[in-house]
Design a protein around this nucleic acid. Structure first.
Lengths: 197, 197
DNA sequence: CTAACTAACATACAGGCTGTATGTATGCAA
DNA sequence: TTGCATACATACAGCCTGTATGTTAGTTAG
């Protein structure tokens, strides 16, 4: 019974352990929240020790940030993918909202991105994270759907931000057990009201 | 130099120390956040020891909850107070929004009620807290301002929840340094769109 | 090919924090 | 005034984070 020596390159080793730590951390952050998740538990779940964690990440918060960035990337990719529809600007907004609902219905994403994220990293950093992953789309979609010339840049930005907040709250409520249809309907009413029916 | 013996009743002692702990905790939770605030620091600021804290509160989270409830009460009271205007339902909504903006501009309230609160206590408990302090008003105000019969109960509730989310995000942005006017304007546009101009 | 260096971990340690258990003094009630 | 309960203070155990140090394996210079 000769043991198979892995003989992997350093790069491979780093990548796999990094991924293992990220996966385990994600699961535990989702299950118990950031504060109640201990680094010994994370590395135990990944079959490693805390030495590996602190070799790859500066501290627990940096690990959390890495988990969030990966998750935000997945959400952005899912929305991007659904963007092929070329209906009216109004329909494009509703399609995007629906895709956002779908993407955020993956268990744990609400907690990661909308609850623990802002509290642990602060609003500025969270805004930076999902701005880096395509936060422009909503503002542009809204600009396309609004009657032109009625809104200056600041007004448009503020409106897009508030609409995004409505999206977030909707997925929060749905995640907490609320029905999806009333919130998708309410989003539609908000959009229709803004774009002038 | 005879020392003046306080000779206070037990009830008095409890009330003052409870208040002292709540005050000190509020200041530190605001300044450093819930997670980075240590109970030794809280009681040191209050001139007491941890024994007093754990005598009056079950644990750190319960203390935080008590701080939040007091703060939510102040916000609700401020809004209630501004509610005397009996203009159109639409104006009443905008007046309420403005009052909410004012109330939440007290430093630290955004962090307490909108960032740390949901993350530490969970959305359900936060919802319960500000439902207990008059969360009905927005739904009722919206019902009065909307054209009647166009919305069932679930739709109205969802719309009110999303509008409330927009309020929250607006004060978050303003708290983070954004200008107030664009957001008050955006709120107005949302309301006008919902109520059919 | 090998010696030196470095990356990728594991192990050990120091400080701090939370929650609890225990001790003490003061108000209160019989 | 005697006994009990309330309002604290003090002491302790366990856990967690971040760092410092040790060890093994991969990489590179000569």
């Amino acid at each position: 019974m000769q043991q198979e020596k892995p003989r992997r390159s350093n790069r491979e080793r780093s990548d796999t352990t990094r991924a293992a730590i990220l996966d385990a951390a994600r699961d535990l952050f989702i299950a118990k929240g950031y504060a109640d998740t201990a680094t010994p538990d994370i590395v135990a779940a990944a079959g490693l020790t805390r030495g590996a964690l602190y070799h790859h990440f500066e501290d627990k918060k940096a690990l959390f940030r890495a988990v969030l960035e990966r998750e935000a990337g997945h959400v952005a990719a899912a929305i991007e993918l659904s963007d092929r529809g070329q209906g009216s600007p109004r329909d494009a907004l509703l399609t995007g909202a629906s895709a956002y609902f779908d993407a955020m219905s993956i268990p744990g994403r609400v907690r990661l991105l909308l609850l623990d994220g802002p509290a642990v990293l602060g609003v500025a950093e969270i805004a930076a994270i999902d701005a880096a992953h395509g936060g422009r789309t909503l503002r542009e979609g809204l600009a396309a759907a609004m009657p032109p010339g009625r809104l200056d840049g600041a007004g448009l930005t503020a409106t897009a931000v508030l609409l995004s907040a409505a999206f977030d709250r909707a997925v929060l409520e749905i995640d907490a057990g609320a029905a999806r249809d009333p919130y998708l309907g309410a989003i539609g009413r908000l959009i229709d009201g803004l774009t002038g029916r």
